[in-house]
């Protein structure tokens, strides 16, 4: 396969950035998308040009480090992470446009690399159960209905990649935040801090500059892990019931 690549190049956060065009020939259908970029980078290096920087690590679709906005979609045409996207999803002669995640709360670091520390700060605001190591009850002391445990697991599968933010026209982080709020609101272990958690995490999300949710559903459609927007509905319920009975204000 022979492809034309239009890739966003930006030297650093202060640089304005712009597209550069490259040709990738000898692309095999069995290559992953990132392997295609590896080959390009080796060619650029041999020519003495700066390789394209992009985030990636596990290449198994679970660490959430890879990103890339490919042909107008986060993680490209398939509902999967970029590292799991293979070149068989593209056809010979195609032009592929590759951009970084675009969101005010995810500033570009270099080329296709963005800073997603805002997600860490949302979790730090309350995405945990406050238990210290040791002194906890036996694991089987509190039975949890399988259906509830399964729902919690559905939400807990979020990999924190940020595709939901990149997909959303408002750059909202509601899907990410609601996945953690839901997981812990569903489980008995999360009950004690339930109200405070919803309030604090929502407040942090707003403080980071993420937009509001207008229910377009783009986040769910693009989420590589299929996190459902019912989590957003659950977070809204959690948040409103927390606010009306809040002890914090």
């Amino acid at each position: 396969m022979k492809l034309t690549l239009k890739i966003w190049r930006q030297k650093n956060a202060a640089d304005k950035g712009g597209f550069a065009t490259y040709t990738a020939d000898q692309v095999s259908k069995d290559m992953s998308f990132l392997e295609m970029l590896d080959v390009l980078n080796d060619q650029l290096t041999e020519k003495g040009e700066d390789p394209v920087h992009f985030d990636h690590d596990c290449r198994e679709g679970i660490c959430g480090m890879c990103s890339l906005y490919i042909n107008g979609k986060p993680h490209g045409p398939q509902q999967t992470t970029t590292c799991q996207l293979h070149m068989r999803s593209f056809s010979d002669g195609e032009t592929i446009t590759i951009e970084p995640w675009r969101a005010k709360a995810f500033p570009v670091v270099k080329d296709l690399v963005v800073n997603r520390s805002a997600f860490d700060r949302i979790i730090q605001a309350g995405g945990y159960v406050s238990v210290n190591t040791g002194g906890v009850p036996d694991a089987n002391e509190i039975p949890i209905p399988k259906t509830i445990a399964d729902l919690a697991m559905d939400a807990a599968q979020c990999i924190g990649c940020g595709a939901c933010v990149a997909a959303c026209k408002n750059a909202s982080a509601m899907l990410f935040t609601s996945a953690k709020v839901s997981q812990l609101a569903l489980l008995p272990q999360g009950q004690v801090e339930r109200k405070a958690r919803a309030e604090k995490m929502v407040a942090q999300m707003d403080a980071e500059g993420f937009g509001a949710c207008t229910n377009t559903g783009a986040c769910e459609a693009e989420c590589p892990k299929g996190i459902s927007i019912t989590n957003i509905a659950r977070m809204n319920r959690e948040y409103f019931s927390a606010v009306v009975s809040s002890e914090n204000i």
């Binding site: 238990v131 906890v136 694991a139 039975p143 997981q183 812990l184 489980l187 272990q189």
Partner: peptide
């Protein structure tokens, strides 16, 4: 025990 207390959603049987 520690992981369950943190809210790790381990697989469960129908009895919980």
């Amino acid at each position: 025990d520690q992981c369950v207390a943190q809210g790790v959603p381990f697989a469960r049987e129908y009895g919980g």
